[in-house]
Amino acid sequence: MKKISVIDWRIDDIMGEYIRGVVVKLHLTHEQEVMFKKNYGCTRKTHNELLNKYKTKYGEDSTKIPTKKELNQFLKESKKELPYLCETESTSLQQARDDLHKAFKNSLKSKRHNPPKFHSKKKTRPSFRQTIQKEKRPVKNNTVTLRKYGKVTFSTSVEYLDLLNHPNTKFNNITVYYDGLNHYASFNIKTTPPEQLPLTKIHIGCDINSNKNGWLVTSKGQKEFFDIYHENQMIKKINRLMSRCRKGSRRWKKLQKRLQKWYNKRTNQLKDYIEKLTYNLVKKYDTIIFEENYNTIKILIGGEQNMIFPLSRFIKRLKDKFQLYKPEAEGVQFVKSHNTSRTCHHCGHINKELKVKTRNWKCPKCKKTFDRDVNAAINILNRWFNGD
């Protein structure tokens, strides 16, 4: 069975433990599925009601952060006004309240975080979160016990099943969500840190591209390709078929499930690829150097845009894995990106006439022939060594 990737982690210095997330697939009965979907809707409704009461009290453009006591009072009022909220699991509504309070605090701390917005049914992923009582273990073998919903069976790999059943594993909370086809549970757990990887004293430079030569090229000549062309073509095909059907018909609903399946497959492939590639890079190298001003790139396959690759997520996972597996290593470093492709790494001559489409070029001074991207990756590595 395919392993479920790690969602998140952080080191806990006091306890000597680290927090991670493990996702499992749930297998629900019909009654449980109905109750879950009701809880999804009530959690979203709670968020919107609390936000609406806040804006009614303080105004649309207010920057004041409400206290937990105020939000709790809003929650009590909402339960009186909407009695059906009391029919769902209570801690999930309290978690929605706490998430809203955290969103207000984050919007004040950094400009990157926008003020809280209303959750729409179409754009918000259906989910709810339950807390775990201290010294209680919700998992036994392949069964998880959820408040109000009873025992639910799940499936995952043997490795993660053993981790969830380990006596030293402590559970913080459980997030249940729906991806349009299946229900999943994400366990937030505390466990012992994994063994650290040995230092290799090997460093590489990495050049990021948007061409057929590989989206990532290293100074060692390694080229990385990520191809989901088939998945994209299937998504386009199903969208064309859906456009010919009446919306809401039986065939339209059947195609909608197929479409969601391909969307999920594409997303899971990307997550799995990033997790495996980042771990392998951290295992091999102590320092990985990139150019500054990275964001996203368009990966091309056969001259056609295949996808927009999330570079920010990729580099963040690299930093996380260095902190977890090699905290003493240099980790991810950055250098200036000016003329990395045009500069000959052998003699230092800058070829100002080099065009963007030229993938291989010959240095006019030393007569050496280079692969454009490998040459750029070597220059990136050399700039870090020279402290530029």
Rank of each mutant, 00 (worst) to 15 (best):
139 V>C: 05
72 N>T: 13
350 I>F: 13
47 H>D: 00
330 E>Q: 10
38 K>Y: 02
61 D>A: 12
348 G>V: 11
46 T>M: 14
54 Y>C: 14
90 S>G: 06
44 R>M: 12
200 T>F: 09
125 R>F: 02
246 R>C: 04
125 R>V: 14
26 L>Y: 05
376 A>E: 08
228 I>V: 14
293 N>P: 00
131 T>I: 08
96 A>I: 04
140 K>A: 02
182 N>A: 04
121 K>N: 06
386 N>E: 15
27 H>A: 05
289 I>Q: 03
339 N>E: 07
359 R>G: 04
249 S>Y: 10
66 P>H: 15
5 S>F: 02
107 S>P: 00
232 N>T: 02
364 P>K: 04
133 Q>S: 13
154 F>C: 12
253 K>F: 05
339 N>A: 09
60 E>G: 04
270 L>W: 01
81 E>R: 13
70 E>C: 09
52 N>C: 11
46 T>K: 07
349 H>P: 08
373 D>I: 10
67 T>Q: 12
48 N>R: 08
1 M>A: 05
336 K>H: 10
305 Q>T: 15
385 F>Q: 05
220 K>I: 01
150 G>Q: 07
17 E>C: 05
87 E>R: 00
209 N>K: 08
185 A>R: 03
123 K>M: 05
157 S>V: 01
284 K>N: 14
338 H>I: 07
38 K>R: 10
79 K>H: 04
333 Q>M: 14
95 Q>I: 12
201 K>G: 07
48 N>S: 10
388 D>P: 01
377 A>C: 02
341 S>K: 04
200 T>N: 14
173 N>A: 10
231 E>R: 03
75 L>G: 06
173 N>T: 09
238 I>T: 12
237 K>P: 02
